[in-house]
Computed example of a mutant assay.
Amino acid sequence: MIPRRRLLQGSAAAAAFACTGFPAGAATPRIEAPEVDSLSIQVVTDGNHDVFISGAQVPGVRIERVRGFRGAQERRVLRSEWGLSLWMASTRGAETKRLLLDFGWTGETLNNNLELLGLDPASLDALVASHGHLDHFGGLEGFLEKHRARMKSDLRLYLGGEDAFCQRVSPAGNGAFASFGRLDRSMLAAARVTPVLSEEPLVIEGHAFTTGIIPRVSQERVLPNTSVVFGQQDGGGCDVSKYAEHHFTPAELAGTPVPDQHLHEHATCYNLKGRGLVIVTSCGHAGILNTMSQARAVTGVKKIHALVGGFHLAPAPQDYLDRIMAELKRQDIDHVFPMHCSGPNFLEAAKREMPQALVLCTTGSRFAFGA
């Protein structure tokens, strides 16, 4: 476990930490990232559905767009909302594994889109939650209510750490806060879903892997978002006793909301045979450069085939965005798929600075790699 103060503090110890991504004297956790032969990622929920978006011709990637529906479904449409949910299917030899990464804001939208896209939850091998924000786990309860009975009995939900269960709040004015949701552990237990928490990298179902906790080694910082309330309230929340080495302050232990550093947020990745890493950031609060650095460090694979998901650059000041874009251009990345919180500012910058790598995304789009 990485002490949280070592992760964030600006001290001499943190300087040693920044060189390696882990505290001085500690080795970077390594995993043997399994190679997959092919991977498809379908956007089940995102912020918009553009029926006119181009299919695009991208070397090494087959892109499918959803225009509309016919027959019994012709009066129905894909719904879009603030949130993200991705259906990911990978093959390794004769074996196929399917994961659902994040669940959008509401179960109504998630369930509607899964049905229209012809995606059967009964075929899922595991679930993954990237972090404890309502726009990423909000649809989980409604999804499980509708589909759990038909899914595998030993269903697992992979999470990056205990503080995924913390209460999140957002400013409501005059020093007050409004709830931004809390992932309910008792709901998971009632649905017979087993949480798998790991701050270290972890292989999922023999195909994918998580980055584990993402060290802050670049110029990036966590841009404004929610505050977090550590500890347990009303029978829920996160158990700080499981994080003795994280050194919570008295104010945090007393339940004072503090700016959320997303220590538990992880990325979900694949090692695509002959192509390199496909890194899915979901929201990327820890920074997309930091996330790429961690994925490389834990696998030893340097080539990045695709960077996919939310990059949380929508609230970025222009000078900050320019610096991140300049560094991103220096990376060896074939394709960039910005979604969700990446922001129109990032899209404009990418069109200008990385047009050969940029792929536009919309609800319903499917991207097939290595096929």
Rank of each mutant, 00 (worst) to 15 (best):
R5A: 08
R5F: 06
R5P: 01
S11I: 03
A15T: 10
A18L: 09
C19H: 13
C19Y: 11
F22A: 08
A24H: 05
A27Y: 00
D37V: 04
I41P: 01
V43D: 08
D46C: 00
G47R: 12
V51F: 05
F52Q: 14
G55A: 11
Q57I: 03
R62D: 12
I63T: 11
V66Y: 02
G68F: 06
L78G: 06
W82I: 03
S85H: 03
S85F: 01
L86K: 05
M88G: 02
G93I: 02
D102K: 07
W105I: 01
W105N: 09
E108P: 01
E108D: 13
N113M: 03
L114F: 03
L116K: 09
L127T: 07
A129H: 04
H131P: 01
E141R: 15
E141K: 15
G142Q: 12
G142L: 08
A149C: 01
L159N: 03
D163Y: 07
Q167I: 01
Q167M: 04
V169M: 14
S170L: 14
A172K: 15
F180L: 02
F180I: 04
R185T: 00
A189M: 06
A189N: 08
L197T: 11
L197C: 10
E200N: 12
P201I: 07
H207P: 01
H207K: 11
V217D: 07
E220P: 06
R221F: 06
Q232Y: 00
Q232F: 01
G235Q: 12
H247F: 13
F248Y: 15
A254G: 06
P259K: 14
E265H: 02
H266I: 10
C269N: 13
C269R: 12
N271G: 03
V278S: 04
I279F: 06
I288R: 14
N290G: 13
G300V: 04
A306V: 05
A306C: 06
V308C: 11
G309I: 05
G310L: 10
F311E: 08
P317E: 13
R323Y: 01
A326L: 02
K329A: 15
I333D: 10
I333W: 11
F337V: 00
E348R: 13
E353V: 08
Q356N: 09
L358P: 08
V359S: 14
C361Y: 05
T363G: 09
G364N: 05
A368V: 10
F369Q: 09
